[in-house]
């Protein structure tokens, strides 16, 4: 009995110590990938730029907190959040059920459909599963697009790459016949010299379960306070025109979506 009581006391003390700790959000570390132009990418001298980055800066300004950016590989970005390498992920991460098991999301901050790009001389007729039967389809791993391809395009031969850079290399030299990614990301790439090889075949109809309701900001489950702060700030920049300003800096259309 004595042991039990002592254990209970110890747990109580730990709980008090743990509960007394209220987090101070004067400084927030934002995780992003830095390899997903035009949403987030690194310049040659190591500066982060892109839509996500500007939105993050606007949010921090609105919340009156100091923000610090941390880059992480995409595969390790949710583990990185959970492990505390940063406090929020602003990296075009789609809000999905599977991810909600591990982290919380704010409301969406943009929503664009996925699309398929192919080499200019490609003979693929359409974007349906039947059209893509047996072709080698590239996608970035751990993305909603790769999940979409796995579930909705099972006849295609899916190849997963750690970053878009690798699938770009492989579609350029003809190792894969098509790639699936966000329409904005693909268009941005096709507009460069690098993307001269290819064209957009068509957009895909997003699936709410797989693609989610759009891209949100991922927060650790226990940091409800930060999530509320982010949601308020997001509503504020949407209302005061700051969001539109950033939107127009990068795009000729509205990425917030319906």
């Amino acid at each position: 009995m004595r042991v039990l009581r002592m254990a209970a006391a110890a747990v109580a003390i730990l709980a008090v110590v743990g509960g007394a700790e209220a987090k101070d959000w004067s400084k927030v570390r934002i995780g992003t990938e830095g390899a997903y132009p035009p949403f987030n990418s690194l310049t040659a001298d190591g500066q982060l730029i892109g839509f996500d980055v500007d939105i993050a800066k606007a949010l921090c300004e609105e919340m009156k907190v100091e923000c610090e950016f941390v880059t992480s590989d995409w595969d390790g970005i949710i583990p990185g959040l959970q492990a505390g390498k940063f406090d929020a992920i602003i990296a075009s991460m789609s809000i999905t059920e599977e991810r909600k098991q591990k982290v919380d999301f704010t409301n969406k901050y943009y929503n664009t459909p996925p699309a398929i790009a192919v080499p200019k001389d490609s003979k693929i007729a359409g974007t349906s599963d039947a059209d893509l039967k047996g072709i080698a389809l590239g996608a970035q791993s751990s993305t909603t697009h790769s999940n979409y391809a796995e579930e909705k395009l099972p006849s295609a031969d899916l190849k997963l790459y750690p970053t878009p850079d690798e699938y770009k290399l492989d579609i350029a030299n003809g190792r894969i016949d098509a790639v699936v990614d966000d329409v904005v990301v693909l268009s941005d790439w096709l507009a460069t010299d690098d993307g001269a090889c290819c064209k957009i075949l068509g957009t895909l109809t997003p699936d709410l379960v797989i693609n989610g309701e759009g891209a949100g900001i991922a927060i650790r489950k226990e940091d409800g306070e930060l999530k509320d702060m982010m949601n308020e700030a997001l509503a504020a920049i949407l209302a005061n025109g700051k969001y539109k300003e950033i939107n127009d800096k990068y795009f000729t259309f509205d990425v917030y979506g319906g």
């Binding site: 595969d75 599977e98 098991q101």
Partner: peptide, 9 residues
Amino acid sequence: TRRAYSRTY
């Protein structure tokens, strides 16, 4: 393994 980890974390 990597695919399973990247979907479930």
